[in-house]
């Protein structure tokens, strides 16, 4: 998009990684999968309390573009996830992962967008609140949207069963 911006991206990612190691927010762990490649991260997200995701630990990958932080990373859960804003392949679809103007889901204009003032930490915190509060206005998994809207109890059951699978139970 803005051609290669390797050095800036690398510097920024290293700074963010250091910050996250020193001051990791509760429920979140994230870092490069390998020290050789700072553009691929793994994150572990704890299911928020008082949600059907509670008790689960969900692994996801973050893939950063060369022009990060001008362009946002993509995030994809590598475990089974049943959630209105997560595609069936695990790709997370929330507004903070899209720059203004890049708007596949027609987010509300007030929703938080990607810009270089955001960070990995802010993305992961947004994902935590997304787990707690799905947004069925910009759905990625239509089935999950439908169940979430029409039968909350059933929705919770499906989610709990995926949580058990994630934990290998």
């Amino acid at each position: 998009m803005y051609k290669t911006m390797g050095p800036t991206a690398l510097k920024r990612l290293m700074t963010e990684y250091r910050e996250l190691t020193l001051h990791a927010p509760e429920g979140i762990t994230a870092g490069p999968i390998s020290e050789d490649n700072f553009f691929e991260w793994e994150a572990l997200i704890e299911g928020p309390q008082d949600t059907p995701y509670e008790g689960g630990i969900f692994p996801a990958t973050l893939t950063f573009p060369r022009d990060y932080p001008l362009s946002p990373p993509t995030m994809k859960f590598t475990c089974e996830m049943f959630h209105p804003n997560i595609y069936q392949d695990g790709t997370v679809c929330i507004s903070i992962l899209h720059a203004p103007g890049d708007d596949p889901n027609m987010y509300e204009s007030s929703s938080e967008r990607w810009s270089p003032v955001q960070s990995v930490e802010k993305i992961l915190l947004s994902v935590l609140s997304m787990l707690a509060e799905p947004n069925d206005e910009s759905g990625a998994n239509i089935e999950a949207c439908k169940v979430w809207r029409s039968d909350r109890k059933h929705f919770d059951e499906i989610v709990r069963s995926t949580v058990r699978k994630t934990l290998g139970l």
Binding site: Y2, L70, S71, A99, P100, G101, S109, S110, E112, R113, W114, S115, P116, V117
Partner: peptide, 19 residues
């Protein structure tokens, strides 16, 4: 315009590259 707050305006139009 459009009832936007300054934070919304800045995030949508000023801070984001390419807008």
């Amino acid at each position: 315009e459009f009832g936007q707050t300054m934070d919304e305006f800045c995030s949508m139009h000023v801070e984001a590259m390419g807008r």
